[in-house]
Design a binder for these strands. Structure first.
Lengths: 112, 112
DNA sequence: TCGATACATCAATGTTTGTTGATTTATAAG
DNA sequence: CTTATAAATCAACAAACATTGATGTATCGA
Protein backbone atom coordinates (compact mmCIF):
# COMPACT_ATOMS: atom_id res chain seq x y z
CA UNK A 1 0.00 0.00 0.00
CA UNK A 2 2.81 2.38 0.83
CA UNK A 3 4.79 3.97 -2.00
CA UNK A 4 7.92 5.96 -1.34
CA UNK A 5 8.19 9.56 -2.38
CA UNK A 6 11.13 9.93 -4.77
CA UNK A 7 13.44 12.87 -4.06
CA UNK A 8 12.13 15.54 -6.36
CA UNK A 9 11.42 19.23 -6.06
CA UNK A 10 8.22 19.80 -4.13
CA UNK A 11 6.80 21.64 -7.16
CA UNK A 12 7.19 18.51 -9.26
CA UNK A 13 5.99 16.24 -6.49
CA UNK A 14 2.84 18.30 -6.13
CA UNK A 15 2.12 17.94 -9.83
CA UNK A 16 2.20 14.16 -9.95
CA UNK A 17 -1.03 12.39 -9.30
CA UNK A 18 0.56 9.38 -7.61
CA UNK A 19 2.59 11.58 -5.27
CA UNK A 20 -0.44 13.68 -4.45
CA UNK A 21 -2.38 10.55 -3.59
CA UNK A 22 0.41 9.24 -1.44
CA UNK A 23 0.94 12.53 0.40
CA UNK A 24 -2.73 13.12 1.02
CA UNK A 25 -3.02 9.62 2.45
CA UNK A 26 -0.15 10.20 4.87
CA UNK A 27 -1.44 13.58 5.98
CA UNK A 28 -4.92 12.22 6.31
CA UNK A 29 -3.59 9.52 8.61
CA UNK A 30 -2.11 12.26 10.78
CA UNK A 31 -5.26 14.38 10.70
CA UNK A 32 -7.15 12.61 13.47
CA UNK A 33 -6.60 13.17 17.18
CA UNK A 34 -6.93 9.51 18.08
CA UNK A 35 -4.30 8.57 15.50
CA UNK A 36 -1.98 11.31 16.72
CA UNK A 37 -2.38 9.94 20.23
CA UNK A 38 -1.45 6.50 18.94
CA UNK A 39 1.69 8.00 17.39
CA UNK A 40 2.44 9.56 20.77
CA UNK A 41 2.19 6.24 22.55
CA UNK A 42 4.39 4.52 19.97
CA UNK A 43 7.17 7.04 20.64
CA UNK A 44 8.25 4.93 23.61
CA UNK A 45 8.44 1.78 21.50
CA UNK A 46 6.18 -0.74 19.86
CA UNK A 47 2.86 -1.54 21.50
CA UNK A 48 0.23 -4.20 21.01
CA UNK A 49 -3.34 -3.19 20.32
CA UNK A 50 -4.40 -4.13 23.83
CA UNK A 51 -1.84 -1.78 25.38
CA UNK A 52 -3.04 1.06 23.14
CA UNK A 53 -6.64 0.23 23.94
CA UNK A 54 -5.91 0.57 27.62
CA UNK A 55 -3.69 3.66 27.31
CA UNK A 56 -6.17 5.55 25.18
CA UNK A 57 -9.33 4.20 26.76
CA UNK A 58 -10.73 3.29 23.35
CA UNK A 59 -12.59 0.27 22.08
CA UNK A 60 -10.69 -2.43 20.26
CA UNK A 61 -12.48 -2.04 16.95
CA UNK A 62 -12.02 1.70 17.01
CA UNK A 63 -8.26 1.31 17.45
CA UNK A 64 -8.11 -1.38 14.80
CA UNK A 65 -9.75 1.05 12.40
CA UNK A 66 -7.24 3.81 13.13
CA UNK A 67 -4.23 1.49 13.09
CA UNK A 68 -5.24 0.34 9.63
CA UNK A 69 -5.27 3.93 8.46
CA UNK A 70 -1.77 4.52 9.89
CA UNK A 71 -0.52 1.28 8.40
CA UNK A 72 -1.98 1.93 4.94
CA UNK A 73 -0.28 5.31 4.98
CA UNK A 74 3.04 3.64 5.76
CA UNK A 75 3.40 5.33 9.13
CA UNK A 76 3.45 2.16 11.21
CA UNK A 77 4.27 -1.50 10.79
CA UNK A 78 2.60 -4.45 12.44
CA UNK A 79 4.24 -7.60 13.71
CA UNK A 80 2.33 -10.58 14.97
CA UNK A 81 3.74 -12.35 18.02
CA UNK A 82 1.49 -15.16 19.10
CA UNK A 83 -1.89 -13.74 19.89
CA UNK A 84 -0.63 -10.19 19.93
CA UNK A 85 0.02 -7.80 17.08
CA UNK A 86 2.59 -5.15 17.84
CA UNK A 87 2.57 -1.82 16.09
CA UNK A 88 5.61 0.41 15.71
CA UNK A 89 6.46 3.69 14.03
CA UNK A 90 8.28 3.68 10.69
CA UNK A 91 11.12 6.19 10.89
CA UNK A 92 11.67 5.97 7.12
CA UNK A 93 8.24 7.35 6.33
CA UNK A 94 8.60 10.01 9.00
CA UNK A 95 11.92 11.03 7.42
CA UNK A 96 10.25 11.26 4.04
CA UNK A 97 7.55 13.54 5.39
CA UNK A 98 10.04 15.65 7.29
CA UNK A 99 12.06 16.12 4.11
CA UNK A 100 8.99 16.96 2.09
CA UNK A 101 7.56 19.54 4.50
CA UNK A 102 11.06 20.92 5.02
CA UNK A 103 11.55 21.47 1.32
CA UNK A 104 8.15 23.11 0.99
CA UNK A 105 9.18 25.38 3.84
CA UNK A 106 12.44 26.24 2.10
CA UNK A 107 10.59 27.05 -1.08
CA UNK A 108 8.19 29.21 0.88
CA UNK A 109 10.97 31.00 2.72
CA UNK A 110 12.66 31.77 -0.60
CA UNK A 111 9.56 33.23 -2.24
CA UNK A 112 7.50 34.77 0.60
CA UNK B 1 -7.65 30.72 14.42
CA UNK B 2 -4.07 29.59 14.29
CA UNK B 3 -2.24 28.74 17.52
CA UNK B 4 1.47 28.07 17.59
CA UNK B 5 2.86 24.80 18.82
CA UNK B 6 5.19 25.51 21.74
CA UNK B 7 8.50 23.66 21.66
CA UNK B 8 7.88 20.58 23.75
CA UNK B 9 8.70 16.90 23.46
CA UNK B 10 6.42 15.23 20.94
CA UNK B 11 5.21 12.87 23.69
CA UNK B 12 3.96 15.85 25.69
CA UNK B 13 2.59 17.61 22.63
CA UNK B 14 0.59 14.53 21.74
CA UNK B 15 -0.95 14.45 25.20
CA UNK B 16 -2.33 17.98 25.15
CA UNK B 17 -5.77 18.41 23.79
CA UNK B 18 -5.13 21.89 22.33
CA UNK B 19 -1.98 20.70 20.54
CA UNK B 20 -3.78 17.64 19.21
CA UNK B 21 -6.54 19.85 17.86
CA UNK B 22 -4.08 22.22 16.26
CA UNK B 23 -1.98 19.43 14.71
CA UNK B 24 -4.94 17.53 13.38
CA UNK B 25 -6.25 20.72 11.77
CA UNK B 26 -2.95 21.37 10.01
CA UNK B 27 -2.61 17.80 8.80
CA UNK B 28 -6.22 17.77 7.72
CA UNK B 29 -5.56 20.86 5.63
CA UNK B 30 -2.74 18.97 3.93
CA UNK B 31 -4.78 15.81 3.45
CA UNK B 32 -6.59 16.87 0.30
CA UNK B 33 -5.13 16.70 -3.21
CA UNK B 34 -6.61 20.01 -4.30
CA UNK B 35 -5.11 21.76 -1.29
CA UNK B 36 -1.74 20.12 -1.88
CA UNK B 37 -1.88 21.38 -5.46
CA UNK B 38 -2.58 24.86 -4.15
CA UNK B 39 0.49 24.60 -1.92
CA UNK B 40 2.46 23.53 -4.99
CA UNK B 41 1.37 26.60 -6.92
CA UNK B 42 2.19 28.91 -4.03
CA UNK B 43 5.77 27.63 -4.00
CA UNK B 44 6.59 30.09 -6.77
CA UNK B 45 5.17 33.01 -4.83
CA UNK B 46 1.84 34.45 -3.79
CA UNK B 47 -1.11 34.03 -6.10
CA UNK B 48 -4.57 35.51 -6.31
CA UNK B 49 -7.58 33.23 -6.34
CA UNK B 50 -8.14 33.82 -10.04
CA UNK B 51 -4.64 32.61 -10.90
CA UNK B 52 -5.15 29.47 -8.84
CA UNK B 53 -8.56 28.93 -10.39
CA UNK B 54 -7.00 29.01 -13.82
CA UNK B 55 -3.92 26.96 -12.92
CA UNK B 56 -5.93 24.21 -11.25
CA UNK B 57 -8.96 24.33 -13.53
CA UNK B 58 -11.27 24.52 -10.54
CA UNK B 59 -14.34 26.58 -9.80
CA UNK B 60 -13.96 29.72 -7.79
CA UNK B 61 -16.15 28.62 -4.89
CA UNK B 62 -14.32 25.34 -4.64
CA UNK B 63 -10.97 27.10 -4.34
CA UNK B 64 -12.39 29.57 -1.85
CA UNK B 65 -13.48 26.64 0.28
CA UNK B 66 -10.05 25.01 0.21
CA UNK B 67 -8.19 28.27 0.76
CA UNK B 68 -10.23 28.84 3.87
CA UNK B 69 -9.18 25.44 5.17
CA UNK B 70 -5.51 26.25 4.53
CA UNK B 71 -5.88 29.66 6.11
CA UNK B 72 -7.68 28.39 9.20
CA UNK B 73 -4.89 25.88 9.66
CA UNK B 74 -2.34 28.69 9.54
CA UNK B 75 -0.67 27.39 6.40
CA UNK B 76 -1.37 30.42 4.23
CA UNK B 77 -2.08 34.11 4.65
CA UNK B 78 -4.33 36.27 2.55
CA UNK B 79 -3.74 39.87 1.53
CA UNK B 80 -6.27 41.99 -0.24
CA UNK B 81 -4.96 44.25 -2.99
CA UNK B 82 -7.78 46.07 -4.66
CA UNK B 83 -10.14 43.57 -6.11
CA UNK B 84 -7.72 40.71 -5.71
CA UNK B 85 -6.90 38.61 -2.68
CA UNK B 86 -3.44 37.14 -2.77
CA UNK B 87 -2.62 33.98 -0.90
CA UNK B 88 0.88 33.01 0.20
CA UNK B 89 2.51 30.21 2.17
CA UNK B 90 3.44 30.78 5.79
CA UNK B 91 6.99 29.55 6.31
CA UNK B 92 6.62 29.82 10.09
CA UNK B 93 3.88 27.21 10.20
CA UNK B 94 5.75 24.99 7.79
CA UNK B 95 8.81 25.21 10.06
CA UNK B 96 6.69 24.25 13.01
CA UNK B 97 5.38 21.18 11.24
CA UNK B 98 8.83 20.23 10.00
CA UNK B 99 10.18 20.44 13.53
CA UNK B 100 7.29 18.41 14.90
CA UNK B 101 7.47 15.59 12.37
CA UNK B 102 11.26 15.64 12.64
CA UNK B 103 11.16 15.19 16.38
CA UNK B 104 8.65 12.36 16.08
CA UNK B 105 11.02 10.78 13.59
CA UNK B 106 13.92 11.14 16.01
CA UNK B 107 11.91 9.54 18.76
CA UNK B 108 10.94 6.73 16.43
CA UNK B 109 14.52 6.20 15.30
CA UNK B 110 15.62 5.97 18.93
CA UNK B 111 13.03 3.38 19.93
CA UNK B 112 12.35 1.29 16.78
C1' DT C 1 -24.09 55.87 -9.94
C1' DC C 2 -23.98 51.80 -12.93
C1' DG C 3 -21.92 47.71 -14.52
C1' DA C 4 -18.28 44.52 -14.23
C1' DT C 5 -14.90 41.83 -11.77
C1' DA C 6 -12.92 39.20 -7.75
C1' DC C 7 -13.98 36.75 -4.07
C1' DA C 8 -16.73 34.87 0.00
C1' DT C 9 -20.69 32.62 1.68
C1' DC C 10 -24.79 29.83 1.60
C1' DA C 11 -28.07 25.96 0.76
C1' DA C 12 -28.56 21.60 -1.13
C1' DT C 13 -26.55 17.27 -2.10
C1' DG C 14 -23.65 13.22 -2.40
C1' DT C 15 -19.47 11.16 -0.46
C1' DT C 16 -16.21 10.00 2.99
C1' DT C 17 -15.08 9.22 7.62
C1' DG C 18 -15.47 7.64 12.44
C1' DT C 19 -18.06 5.07 15.91
C1' DT C 20 -20.50 1.15 17.81
C1' DG C 21 -21.67 -3.46 18.55
C1' DA C 22 -21.68 -8.01 16.50
C1' DT C 23 -19.24 -11.49 14.05
C1' DT C 24 -15.07 -13.75 12.39
C1' DT C 25 -10.30 -15.37 12.38
C1' DA C 26 -6.13 -16.76 14.58
C1' DT C 27 -3.53 -18.37 18.37
C1' DA C 28 -2.81 -20.47 22.58
C1' DA C 29 -3.85 -23.10 26.87
C1' DG C 30 -6.31 -26.58 29.35
C1' DC D 1 -11.53 -30.65 21.16
C1' DT D 2 -13.08 -26.94 23.81
C1' DT D 3 -12.60 -22.54 25.57
C1' DA D 4 -10.51 -18.08 26.13
C1' DT D 5 -8.00 -14.18 24.41
C1' DA D 6 -6.24 -10.79 20.75
C1' DA D 7 -7.32 -8.59 16.91
C1' DA D 8 -9.57 -7.83 12.22
C1' DT D 9 -13.70 -7.17 9.75
C1' DC D 10 -18.47 -6.04 8.89
C1' DA D 11 -23.03 -3.63 8.85
C1' DA D 12 -25.47 0.25 10.36
C1' DC D 13 -25.55 4.79 11.51
C1' DA D 14 -24.29 9.69 12.38
C1' DA D 15 -21.19 13.39 11.60
C1' DA D 16 -17.92 15.76 8.83
C1' DC D 17 -16.41 17.00 4.33
C1' DA D 18 -16.29 18.35 -0.66
C1' DT D 19 -18.79 19.96 -4.65
C1' DT D 20 -22.09 22.73 -7.19
C1' DG D 21 -24.74 26.59 -8.42
C1' DA D 22 -26.80 30.72 -6.63
C1' DT D 23 -26.47 34.84 -3.98
C1' DG D 24 -24.01 38.43 -1.40
C1' DT D 25 -20.17 41.82 -0.76
C1' DA D 26 -16.34 44.72 -1.94
C1' DT D 27 -13.70 47.28 -5.28
C1' DC D 28 -12.85 49.42 -9.43
C1' DG D 29 -13.58 51.92 -13.87
C1' DA D 30 -16.72 54.28 -16.94
Amino acid sequence: MSVSLPARTPEKTLERSADLARLSRVFHALSDETRLQIVGKLLTGEKCVCELTEALDATQSRLSFHLKSLKDAGLVTDRRAGRWVHYALRPDTLSEITRFVGSVREGAARCC
